[in-house]
Lab assay of single mutants.
Amino acid sequence: MDVFMKGLSKAKEGVVAAAEKTKQGVAEAAGKTKEGVLYVGSKTKEGVVHGVATVAEKTKEQVTNVGGAVVTGVTAVAQKTVEGAGSIAAATGFVKKDQLGKNEEGAPQEGILEDMPVDPDNEAYEMPSEEGYQDYEPEA
């Protein structure tokens, strides 16, 4: 019985440690998101679009440190934060509304985080759909 109880105690310690790591990862992701939003706020009209992409990228980098179902929630929060940063930029006159959601080359930025393969159960990952990809044929 002692062996059984000791095993359960060790398992509990492992769960607590994993929860603490997840909590730490979420806190880091939130900190990076805040950094990115402050970065966007300090940019001029020309830099705002690039700044919004930076927020998304920093958040995406930190999301990889967070495991399990938390990833889905962090990704949703990050996307809403990026959308909010863009709205703030438009409201303050840093950028025109028609410039939001495009990178410096004018290509749409939507789907940055949505296409990231995420499995809350950590069982399997699927690649994003290939609808947006084109076949590449090298020139002879």
Rank of each mutant, 00 (worst) to 15 (best):
V118T: 14
A90V: 15
E35H: 14
T22Q: 01
Q79L: 13
Q109G: 01
N122Y: 14
K60G: 12
Q24F: 09
A30W: 01
F4Y: 02
V70F: 05
A69K: 12
A90W: 11
K10Q: 10
V71I: 04
A17N: 13
H50P: 10
Y136H: 01
D135F: 08
Q79T: 10
G84Q: 09
G101P: 04
K58Q: 08
D121P: 12
E61T: 14
G111K: 10
G73W: 08
E28S: 13
Q109I: 10
V82M: 04
A11S: 14
E83K: 04
E104R: 00
A78D: 03
V118W: 05
G84A: 15
V77W: 11
P120Y: 11
E104Q: 13
P117S: 09
V63Y: 09
A76Y: 15
G47R: 10
K23M: 06
A56E: 02
V70A: 03
G25R: 03
G106A: 05
Y39L: 04
Y133N: 14
Q109E: 05
A53V: 15
G41S: 03
A30R: 05
K43S: 03
A107E: 09
E130V: 10
P108W: 15
K97V: 03
E131R: 14
Y133A: 09
P108S: 04
T75C: 07
E130F: 10
A124D: 06
A11V: 14
A85Q: 09
K96E: 09
V3A: 03
E35R: 13
K80P: 01
I112C: 05
E137Q: 03
M116D: 09
P117N: 06
S9R: 14
T22W: 12
E137W: 03
Q79I: 02
K60Q: 03
E139T: 05
V55I: 14
T72L: 03
K97L: 15
A78R: 13
E83C: 11
E46L: 10
K6S: 04
P120L: 11
V16M: 14
E104C: 06
A76P: 02
E35G: 07
P128T: 12
G93L: 15
G41Y: 15
V63N: 00
K80G: 08
V49D: 01
G25F: 06
S129C: 07
P128F: 08
A85P: 12
E13S: 14
V82Q: 06
E114D: 12
T22V: 14
V15Q: 00
E104W: 02
Y125S: 03
E20P: 02
A30T: 06
K96D: 08
V26T: 09
K32Q: 11
V3M: 11
K60T: 08
S9L: 05
E61S: 08
T54F: 14
G36D: 09
K12C: 08
G68K: 08
A90N: 13
Q134V: 07
L38V: 09
E28H: 06
A124H: 09
T92Y: 09
G106L: 05
A53I: 09
V48H: 00
K34C: 02
G51T: 09
K58W: 13
A69T: 15
S9F: 07
G31W: 05
G7F: 11
K102W: 04
V74R: 01
Y133C: 01
E46M: 11
E110A: 09
E57V: 14
T75H: 07
A85E: 02
T92V: 05
K80V: 10
Q99Y: 12
G101V: 02
T64D: 10
